[in-house]
Simulated scan of single mutants.
Amino acid sequence: MFNPIVTRPSLLLAGCSALVLTACSPAAEPPATSKAEESAHASEPMAMAQTPFSAAETRMHEAMMAATGADAGETWARKMIPHHQGALDMSQIVLRDTQDADIRRMAQKTVEMQTTDIAELRRWLETRVGAAAGAAAPGGGGEPPFAPAETKMKDAMMSATGANTDRMWASKMIAHHQGALEMSQVALRESQDAGIRRMAQKTIEMQTADIAEMRAWLAAHPVGGS
């Protein structure tokens, strides 16, 4: 029988060919989605920076996430202070830019109401907790009940846009107030403190009325309308 003789150079050639094929195989290429993912992540901060409200929104969300307390009532109070401050800051921005009489009225009302509410929350913390308002209590365990509402509010506010500053402010305030409403409902469910329950119920009533007013303004000022 004839036995083929395989020379050493032939073996080397075959090995090199295999290496070339392996190097050219799809498995050796980097994942096709990596560049797309990097591009998406890189574009997110740019999208935020394009709105006049981005800095105020970011400050508010970061401060709210960091605020905790010894129980649900205290946590709600600590989170509502930066929440209301965010609405105050954003309303001052729209007051600087808008020429619409109704937007100016709603924004001014928001500034006045949120300033009053912040002072009330700080008094409650100083009286009932004996701690400086805005300082997180160590080892606070009250954050988890509010996390879903906070996340929902953040996503809704960040995605709220408008053809101009007026519409953007109204859209973002609807999401902002809806977040306060839902977090206040959690506080009513979790807290037995009379002061917290009174402030939470007042927040629900006021924010519900404000949401209806802002939705009516948006409906009366459609994009492209006069």
Rank of each mutant, 00 (worst) to 15 (best):
Ala219Arg: 14
Leu188Pro: 06
Asp117Thr: 07
Ile196Glu: 02
Thr58Phe: 02
Ala55Met: 09
Asp89Pro: 05
Thr51Arg: 08
His61Lys: 05
Ala63Ser: 13
Met157Ile: 14
Arg104Val: 00
Cys24Ala: 15
Ala180Gly: 15
Pro4Lys: 12
His176Trp: 04
Ala220Gly: 13
Pro222Thr: 10
Gln85Met: 13
His61Asp: 10
Phe2His: 13
Asn164Met: 06
Pro30Asp: 13
Ser91Tyr: 04
Ser34Leu: 14
Pro52Phe: 03
Ser43Pro: 02
Leu121Met: 14
Arg198Lys: 15
Arg8His: 08
Ser171Trp: 05
Ala220Gln: 13
Phe53Met: 04
Glu44Arg: 13
Thr151Asp: 10
Arg167Phe: 02
Arg104Thr: 10
Ala27Ile: 08
Pro52Asp: 15
Asp117Tyr: 00
Gly69Leu: 02
Ala133Cys: 06
Lys172Thr: 03
Gly179Ala: 02
Thr22His: 08
Val6Phe: 09
Ala49Phe: 03
Ile196Ser: 00
His177Met: 03
Trp76Leu: 00
Trp76Ile: 00
Leu13Cys: 05
Val111Gly: 11
Arg197Lys: 15
Ser91Gln: 06
Asp155Ala: 15
Pro222Leu: 08
Gly224Val: 12
Ala77Asn: 00
Thr151Lys: 14
Ala67Cys: 08
Ala66Glu: 11
Ala194Tyr: 00
Ile196Trp: 00
Asp155Ile: 09
His41Ser: 10
